[in-house]
Design a protein around this nucleic acid. Structure first.
Length: 258
DNA sequence: ATGGCTCGTTATACGAGA
């Protein structure tokens, strides 16, 4: 099974690149973030024509998450939108569903903006809520995958210039501790790090100043696998070509092979 | 040089993103 997670930064603008990815990689499951679409405008028909069912949690101009499943892998079951314990239930940041016997969550963690801002506290609370949910799912029979934009670089190796992020969100010890707590609560592994312990590769680059071409990025998009799912992990890579070309997202897709 | 892009918006400048 091939799973992709991708922060598309507007599904409306990115639809040509999404269809390109579906045709090129033929993923079985896709977790998307920052769809930025009203529920009524979600392009379910276009995705169905491309061979994919979808469930989504949509709240208009910001955030928005979705899970796609290729028709051949079977129906998407027991979809739940929203995360127990999140402080802003009006923001669409979590959707989970069962696909091919695996519990899959697509997550878009709040950015946090500035340390000491109210949204930063909401970010920390959201990470705590993920840990709580991961703990619940651990005790179920289904293998688990939590994939998305965590807006946290788990370690210094995941940051192009640690000094440049001094005092910034995404690298703070309290954020990283919470990501660790998610791994512990769900008995999860970071799929990319599991297979590439020392590789320096990123999933996001600022649009400005040619950061992508200068290798200035962060690894903030993660696929977290429960032990049963991780036992079938064969490959995990970053599809950097989708950060190039016409109208790219500022994130590259993360591709997981199970 | 404190911006630099790229999104969406009861838009036409501004907030948000990371």
């Amino acid at each position: 099974m091939k799973v992709v997670t991708w922060n598309v930064n507007s599904l409306k603008v990115r639809m040509p690149r999404v269809l390109e990815l579906l045709a090129a990689l033929e993923p079985d499951v896709v977790c998307m973030q920052e769809t930025k679409t009203e529920a009524a405008a979600f392009p379910a028909d276009e995705l169905a024509a491309a061979g994919y069912d979808a469930v989504h949690h949509s709240a208009g101009r910001w955030a928005g998450v979705a899970i796609l499943a290729r028709h051949e892998v079977g129906p998407i079951a027991d979809a739940v939108s929203g995360l127990s314990g999140e402080l802003r239930e009006d923001e669409a940041r979590w959707v989970e569903a069962t696909v091919s016997g695996m519990r899959v969550a697509s997550v878009y963690v709040p950015n946090g903006r500035e340390v000491d801002s109210p949204t930063y506290d909401e970010k920390l609370a959201f990470l705590d809520a993920i840990a709580e949910r991961a703990g619940q799912l651990r005790s179920s029979d289904e293998p688990m995958l939590i994939a998305g934009d965590f807006n946290v670089a788990p370690a210094d190796i995941d940051v192009y210039d640690v000094a440049a992020f001094e005092g910034s969100t995404h690298v703070q010890p309290e954020e990283r501790r919470r990501v660790e707590a998610i791994l512990e609560a769900g008995e999860l592994v970071d799929a990319y790090r599991e297979l590439h312990p020392d590789d320096v590769h990123y999933t996001w680059w600022d649009y400005r100043q040619g950061h992508f071409h200068r290798g200035m990025g962060l690894r903030i998009d993660l696929a977290l696998l429960s032990a049963r799912a991780a036992g079938t992990l064969t490959a995990c890579g970053i599809a950097r070509d989708f950060r190039k070309g016409t109208k790219p997202s500022d994130h590259a897709p993360l591709v997981v092979e199970l």
